[in-house]
Amino acid sequence: MTGHYKSLVTKVCPNADVTVDRFHVTKMLQEEFNQARIAQKKAASALKVKEITKLFYCLKVSKYILMKAAIKLSEPQKQKLKKVKNAAALLGIMHELKEEFHALFI
């Protein structure tokens, strides 16, 4: 999926079609999503404001809930996801986009 891979395949096999499967794209999306979660958590802890730190505390243990398919979440996990989305709008948007991407393959 990187430029080097594509250029190598094109060079070695000029008539080949380079394709990318959904599993590799999903992996890339999840890695970016997790990096955004970590960045949000670091930003909250750097503020040192008690209320904001409490609000973002849920990000510390939210990786599994954010990565798991929304339709497979238990009711307590859905509540936790809702708290995370309220605490970090960016993660809420990224979660919705992840779910839309997965819906393409159902």
Rank of each mutant, 00 (worst) to 15 (best):
M1K: 08
M1H: 12
T2E: 09
T2L: 08
H4T: 11
Y5D: 10
Y5E: 13
K6N: 11
S7C: 09
S7T: 10
V9E: 01
T10I: 04
T10D: 14
T10Y: 06
K11P: 00
V12Q: 07
V12N: 00
V12Y: 07
C13T: 05
N15T: 15
A16W: 01
D17W: 01
D17H: 01
V18R: 00
V18C: 12
V18L: 04
D21F: 13
D21L: 06
R22Y: 12
R22V: 10
H24K: 06
H24A: 02
H24S: 04
H24E: 03
V25D: 02
T26Y: 09
K27I: 05
M28T: 04
M28R: 08
M28C: 13
L29P: 03
Q30V: 09
Q30N: 14
E31G: 07
E32H: 07
E32M: 13
E32Q: 12
F33V: 03
N34G: 03
N34M: 03
N34E: 09
Q35G: 05
Q35C: 06
A36C: 06
A36D: 00
A36R: 02
R37H: 00
R37C: 02
I38C: 07
I38Y: 00
Q40E: 11
Q40A: 15
K41L: 14
K41H: 11
K41C: 08
A43M: 03
A43G: 11
A43T: 12
A43Q: 06
A44F: 02
L47R: 15
K48A: 05
K48N: 14
V49S: 12
V49N: 13
V49H: 11
K50W: 08
K50F: 05
E51R: 08
E51P: 08
E51M: 07
E51F: 00
T53H: 02
T53S: 12
T53D: 09
L55S: 15
Y57R: 15
C58V: 15
L59K: 10
L59S: 13
K60V: 04
V61A: 05
V61L: 03
S62D: 04
S62T: 13
S62F: 00
S62M: 07
K63V: 08
K63N: 08
K63E: 15
K63P: 14
Y64G: 12
Y64P: 13
L66W: 03
L66T: 11
M67N: 10
M67R: 03
M67G: 09
K68R: 07
K68P: 14
K68Q: 09
K68N: 04
I71F: 02
I71V: 11
K72Q: 13
P76F: 01
P76R: 01
Q77R: 00
Q79T: 14
Q79M: 05
Q79V: 11
L81G: 08
K82V: 07
K82I: 07
K82A: 15
K83C: 10
K83W: 04
V84A: 01
K85R: 13
N86L: 08
A87K: 09
A87R: 07
A89G: 06
A89I: 07
L90T: 15
L90I: 11
L91H: 04
G92L: 05
G92A: 05
I93P: 00
M94K: 07
H95G: 06
H95Y: 14
L97A: 12
K98C: 09
E99G: 02
E100C: 10
F101N: 01
F101T: 00
F101H: 03
H102S: 09
A103F: 08
L104Y: 13
F105V: 06
I106C: 06
